[in-house]
Amino acid sequence: MKLTAPIPVLRIFDEAKAKAFYVDWLGFTVDWEHRFGDDFPLYLQVSRDGCVLHLSEHHGDATPGSRLRIHCDDIDGFATDLKQRPYKFAHPGAPEKMPWGTRELTLGDPFGNRLTFSSPPG
Rank of each mutant, 00 (worst) to 15 (best):
I70A: 03
L105I: 01
H91S: 15
R67A: 14
G108M: 07
G101K: 12
I75W: 04
G77Q: 00
T106L: 08
P99E: 05
R69F: 11
R103D: 15
M98N: 00
I70S: 03
L82M: 02
R67T: 14
G93A: 01
L105K: 00
I75T: 01
T80V: 13
D76P: 04
I70R: 04
A79T: 14
K88S: 15
F117M: 12
N113E: 12
R103W: 12
L68C: 11
I70G: 01
F78L: 15
P86H: 11
R114T: 11
R85H: 13
I70F: 03
K88A: 15
T63H: 07
F78P: 03
R69Y: 10
I75M: 02
C72T: 14
P64V: 12
D81A: 15
D73R: 07
L107D: 06
P99R: 08
E96V: 10
T116D: 06
D109A: 11
P64H: 04
G65W: 07
S66V: 05
N113A: 02
Y87I: 05
S66K: 06
A90Y: 05
T102G: 06
D76N: 14
L105R: 05
Y87S: 03
T63A: 11
D109Q: 10
K97E: 15
F111L: 13
A90F: 02
T80M: 10
F78T: 07
I70W: 06
H91P: 13
F117W: 11
T106M: 08
S66R: 06
Q84I: 00
R85E: 14
E96Q: 11
T63E: 13
K97L: 12
D109T: 08
E96N: 08
F89V: 09
P92K: 09
F89Q: 13
Q84T: 03
T106V: 08
Y87G: 02
D76G: 01
I75R: 01
I70L: 10
P99G: 02
C72D: 12
P110C: 00
R67F: 10
D74L: 01
T106D: 05
H71P: 08
A94G: 08
W100M: 00
R67C: 11
T116F: 00
T102A: 11
R103M: 05
P110Y: 03
G101H: 10
D109H: 10
G101S: 05
A94Y: 09
P92W: 06
P64N: 04
L68Q: 05
P110S: 00
R114P: 01
G65I: 07
F89T: 12
L82V: 02
A90L: 09
C72E: 13
D81K: 11
P64M: 06
H71T: 10
F117S: 12
T116C: 12
E96C: 06
P64W: 04
K97M: 13
K83N: 15
T102E: 14
H91E: 14
K97H: 13
T63Y: 07
K88L: 15
P86V: 05
A79K: 01
F117Y: 15
F111E: 14
R85Y: 07
